[in-house]
C-alpha cells in the first residue's frame, strides 16, 4: 500500500532521514516509535509532500508520491494530522471540517455528503458546529483535526503524536476513532512517543533511531522486543525477543 525506499530527507542542516525503508500494508495501523530526533515526524512530512526527499521514493500502490506537491498527494488519498495545532482558530468547527474538503469544493453534493458521513463518525462536529476551533479543548481539537482529514475519504491517514497533551478520556475517544477508521479499511501510519499506547493501538510497529529504521514487526513483537523494553518501557515489558521481529543493521537494511 505505502512503501518508502531509501528515503533521505532533511531541512537544510543535514539529512534527518538517512535511507528509510518502510512498508505499510493496506488496512493496517503502523506505529513508528523512537526517541526524539529519530526522524519519526519527518517520515510523515515526506509522505504527505510537505518535505521533498533528496533521495529515495515513496509509493502508494503504483502511484509515486515523492516529488509530487502536497495538494497532489492529498488528491491521491493521503491526509495528515500534524503534531502541532492544525485547526483554523477563528473559524467555526463546521467551517474547519469543510476546509478539509477544499480539493472537492466544486462538487457541492459530494462535499455535503462527506460532511454528513463525517458528522456521523465524529458527532462532535455537529454538536459543536458553531464553536470556534480555537476555543476547543485539546481532545476536541484532535477529534476535529481527524474529522477534517476524513472529508477527502483518505486511503492513508497519517497521524503525528495523536496522544500529545490529551487526558485519558480524550485519549480513549481518539483511540476509538482510529480503531473505527481501521475497521473501515483506512491504512493508518502514526507516530507516537507514548510507546505503550501507540503499539497497543497498532497492528505493526516500526522503531526508528538516528534517521534509520532499527526494527520492524507486528506491534506485539516490537513491544516485546528486549531492546524496546529496555529503551522505552523501563524494562517492564516482556523481554522475549519475537522470532519474526526484524532487526536492521546500522545502514537501516534488514539484517536477517
Amino acid at each position: 500500500m505505502l512503501e518508502l525506499t531509501g528515503v533521505v530527507a532533511g531541512y537544510g542542516g543535514g539529512a534527518v532521514l538517512q535511507g528509510v525503508d518502510l512498508v505499510c500494508d493496506e488496512g493496517t495501523i503502523t506505529c513508528v516509535v523512537g526517541p526524539n530526533g529519530a526522524g519519526k515526524s519527518t517520515v510523515l512530512r515526506v509522505v504527505s509532500g510537505l518535505l521533498t526527499p533528496s533521495e529515495g521514493t515513496v509509493m502508494m500502490g503504483d502511484i509515486q508520491l515523492s516529488g509530487q506537491s502536497a495538494a497532489a498527494i492529498l488528491r491521491a488519498g493521503v491526509t495528515q494530522v500534524p503534531q502541532s495545532q492544525a485547526l483554523f482558530p477563528h473559524m467555526s468547527v463546521r467551517e474547519n471540517v469543510l476546509m478539509g474538503g477544499f480539493l472537492i469544493r466544486r462538487d457541492k453534493k459530494l462535499l455535503m455528503s462527506r460532511l454528513e458521513q463525517v458528522q456521523q463518525l465524529v458527532p462532535l462536529v455537529a454538536d459543536r458546529a458553531a464553536q470556534h476551533g480555537g476555543n476547543l479543548s485539546g481532545g476536541q481539537r484532535r477529534m476535529v483535526e481527524i474529522a477534517r482529514c476524513l472529508m477527502l475519504d483518505p486511503k492513508v491517514l497519517l497521524l503525528d503524536e495523536p496522544s500529545l497533551g490529551l487526558d485519558p478520556r480524550s485519549l480513549a475517544a481518539v483511540a476509538e476513532l482510529i480503531n473505527r477508521l481501521h475497521g473501515d479499511g483506512v491504512t493508518v501510519l502514526l507516530v507516537e512517543q507514548n510507546v505503550r499506547l501507540g503499539l497497543g493501538l497498532a497492528t505493526h510497529g516500526v522503531v526508528m533511531e538516528g534517521g534509520k529504521v532499527r526494527l520492524t514487526g507486528s506491534a506485539t513483537e516490537v513491544m516485546n522486543h528486549p531492546e524496546i523494553a529496555t529503551l522505552y518501557l523501563g524494562g517492564t515489558s516482556a523481554t522475549t525477543k519475537a522470532a519474526d521481529a526484524v532487526p536492521h543493521d546500522s545502514a537501516g537494511a534488514p539484517s536477517q
Partner: peptide, 9 residues
C-alpha cells in the same frame, strides 16, 4: 494557520 492550510491543499 498557514501550515494547516497547506495540509488541506
Amino acid at each position: 494557520n498557514p501550515s494547516g492550510a497547506a495540509l488541506v491543499g
